[in-house]
């Protein structure tokens, strides 16, 4: 059986990749996908722990997270579409109508 730590480290790497993608990328869709990557790395953590300690609840939580991520995707893409209609761009640097 693969040790727990492997899964945890993989999940941590995926989470960090998501964070890096969110910070570095300038395209709204790519930033959104980075967030999805972060959420999925959390799912992996939940499942790994759940299997390791033999408690099923962690796997149930993953369903909740997936459903909520789907709802968030629906709303998020709608917001991005609304922005695209007004600005004809997906570049986050153009989200700049308000500044300090």
């Amino acid at each position: 059986m693969v040790p727990l730590n492997y899964f945890l480290i993989l999940a941590a790497i995926l989470f960090c990749l998501g964070v890096i993608g969110f910070v570095m990328k300038r395209n709204l869709i790519t930033m959104f996908m980075s967030i999805e990557l972060m959420l999925n790395s959390v799912n992996l953590t939940f499942v790994a722990f759940s299997r390791h300690i033999n408690v099923l609840s962690g796997q149930i939580f993953v369903f909740f997270v997936m459903v909520i991520a789907a709802a968030e995707a629906a709303v998020g893409l709608a917001i991005i579409v609304a922005f695209y209609r007004n600005r004809e761009s997906l570049n986050v640097d153009e989200v700049d109508r308000m500044k300090l």
Binding site: F15, I35, L39, V42, F46, F49, I53, S57, F83, V92
Partner: peptide
């Protein structure tokens, strides 16, 4: 539009952190 985009992106970004914290606490 801009308010919604900023709130949505940063809000879901922060939620992912909260969720990761929950997962570690569960573990």
């Amino acid at each position: 539009n801009e308010a919604a985009i900023k709130y949505f992106l940063l809000g879901s970004f922060a939620t992912a952190f909260l969720l990761y914290g929950i997962a570690l606490m569960y573990g």
